[in-house]
C-alpha cells in the first residue's frame, strides 16, 4: 500500500478576491487500494479540492500549493502534460450521469475515446477492450452500440465508471457519483466501485455529503467545513469517536434508519465559538 498522491498547503481563492479562501491550507494523502471519503456540506470545498487535483478549476479560481502525484508535482505541469495524466492515470466520475455523456455518440464510442487517445487502441482491439470494460461494470457488451438515452440512470453511471477506469488509472476521483440515483441502484454502484478499487488496487477519492455512504465505502475519512479540513482519520475513528465539534454536530443531524438520532440542527454560532476556543487552546 503505497502513497500515491500527496497534497500540501492547497488553497483555492477567487481570482478577484485572493483573501477569500474557498479551500484553505488543505493537506491530503492517498494510498493505493484505499478509499478516502471527503465529507462536508455544500460550499465546504470538497468538489473544489477534487477539481484542483485534476487541474479543472474554473478560470475565475486560482489554486496554490503542492499536489504530488506519483512523485511529480502536477501543479507545475503544462496543459499538454496534464492531459496525459488526466483520463489515463487519474480517472474521474461526476455526479450527473445524464449530463456528462454526449447524447449523439454511442456509449461504446465514448468509452473508446480515452483508449484511443492514451493507449492508441484502434479497430478490433479497441472493440474488444470496450466490450470487456462494459462487462466489468455489469452491462451486456452489445450495449456498446446504444445511445445514452437508451440506458437507465444506473446504467449511464456504469458507463461513466467504464470510461473512467478504461486506462486503469492509479487514482479514481468520484464526485458524488450516486447522489442522483435511487437507493437500490446506489447500493449496486457502491459495491461495483469497491470491487474495482480492490481488483485494480486503485486509490479512490470519494466525495459525498452522505454519512451512510461513508460508512459503506470508506477506509479513511476527511471532514471539510467552510474550506478547511477539520478532521481526518479512519472511518471507525471519525464515525464512532469524532473529535472535532463540527464533525460531532454534523453526525448529530443525520437521520438514521433506526430513528434513534435526535436530528439536532447545527448551531453555527455555537460552533464558531467552539472553533475559536479550540484555536485559543491550541
Amino acid at each position: 500500500m503505497s502513497e500515491i498522491l500527496t497534497i500540501n498547503n492547497l488553497n483555492v481563492t477567487p481570482q478577484n478576491d485572493l483573501n477569500r479562501f474557498l479551500v484553505k491550507n488543505a493537506a491530503i494523502s492517498l494510498s493505493s487500494g484505499k478509499t478516502t471519503c471527503i465529507v462536508g456540506e455544500s460550499g465546504s470545498g470538497k468538489s473544489l479540492t477534487a477539481l484542483s487535483i485534476m487541474g479543472l478549476l474554473s478560470k475565475q479560481l486560482q489554486s496554490t500549493g503542492r499536489i504530488v502525484f506519483q512523485g511529480q508535482d502536477i501543479t507545475q505541469l503544462d496543459n499538454k502534460a496534464l492531459q496525459k495524466i488526466r483520463g489515463a492515470k487519474i480517472g474521474m466520475i461526476f455526479q450527473e450521469p445524464m449530463t456528462s455523456l454526449n447524447p449523439v455518440l454511442t456509449v461504446g464510442y465514448q468509452i473508446g475515446e480515452a483508449l484511443t487517445a492514451h493507449m492508441g487502441l484502434k479497430g478490433s482491439g479497441l472493440k474488444l477492450r470496450v466490450e470487456s470494460l462494459l462487462q466489468q461494470v455489469g452491462i451486456a457488451k452489445d450495449r456498446a452500440d446504444s445511445y445514452p438515452d437508451e440506458l437507465s440512470g444506473g446504467q449511464r453511471q456504469r458507463v461513466m465508471i467504464a470510461m473512467s477506469i478504461a486506462c486503469e488509472p492509479a487514482l479514481l476521483i468520484a464526485d458524488e457519483p450516486t447522489t442522483a440515483l435511487d437507493v437500490t441502484v446506489q447500493a449496486q454502484i457502491l459495491q461495483l466501485l469497491d470491487e474495482l478499487k480492490t481488483r485494480m488496487n486503485m486509490a479512490m477519492l470519494f466525495i459525498t455529503h452522505d454519512f451512510g455512504v461513508v460508512a459503506d465505502i470508506a477506509d479513511d475519512v476527511i471532514v471539510m467545513f467552510r474550506g478547511e479540513i477539520v478532521e481526518t482519520g479512519t472511518k471507525k475513528q471519525v464515525l464512532e469517536n469524532p473529535q472535532h465539534p463540527y464533525t460531532k454536530a454534523l453526525l448529530a443531524c443525520v437521520p438514521d434508519a433506526e430513528g434513534k438520532n435526535q436530528l439536532k440542527p447545527i448551531d453555527y454560532a455555537w460552533l464558531k465559538d467552539g472553533l475559536n476556543d479550540k484555536r485559543a487552546a491550541a
Binding site: A187, G212, D216, K235, G259
Partner: peptide
C-alpha cells in the same frame, strides 16, 4: 422497518446506505 413483509420492501431497506457497516 422492523419486519418488512414484502421482498421489495426488504430490498429497499437493505439498500439504505450505512446499514451493513
Amino acid at each position: 422497518y422492523n419486519e418488512p413483509k414484502q421482498a421489495y420492501t426488504r430490498q429497499l431497506l437493505s439498500a439504505i446506505p450505512g446499514r451493513k457497516a
